[in-house]
Amino acid sequence: MSKDSNPSTQAPGSIEPADATSATPGGRVWRCGDNLDTDALAPGQYMKYGIEEIARHCLESLQPEFASQVRAGDVVVAGRNCGTGSSREQAPQALKHLGVAALVAKSFAGLFYRNAINLGLPAVVCAEADRIQAGDRIRVDARAGLIHNHTRGEQLRCEAIPAHLLQLLDDGGLLPHLERRLAGRTNNHPAAVSSHE
């Protein structure tokens, strides 16, 4: 296996996508490199604060303009081993808080992947993620396992998200999923429900 490169990112630039006038333009792409780490996504010194403050510093060591310029619906596309490092779920949570609609990577660190899904942020594995460039307009269909790149007019296939995780995404994450589950239990087995703390 090759020696891991340092995480690197490229700014999306100000290229206006070719189909900017299309009815469903998709999200703008922000590109990151291999081994994007959780310290870059949720820097340690801000971990004592709430997600709003952490998100303000998301990726600041690599791409200082990211947090202020990213818009709702944008997509982050990374290389191999996206989210390596810490268990801090504020890493994917910061992206979600900033409005990132989905994460695409050639592969994810397992712990980060679980955190992303648990927070309701679609994370899809796409072997051909490198065909997507910064500034492209793409739409990620996690359920179908497809990425539509409007800028380049191509479709890329992604790995299917396992059924039990799709269920979590459909519910909006693990917490709302548990809410539903516990509510269901309330109806069926009232005795099984813990009382309020």
Binding site: E89, G173, L174, L175
Partner: peptide, 8 residues
């Protein structure tokens, strides 16, 4: 695990 998964 992250905090939400720990909660679960």
């Amino acid at each position: 695990v992250g905090a939400t998964e720990m909660l679960g």
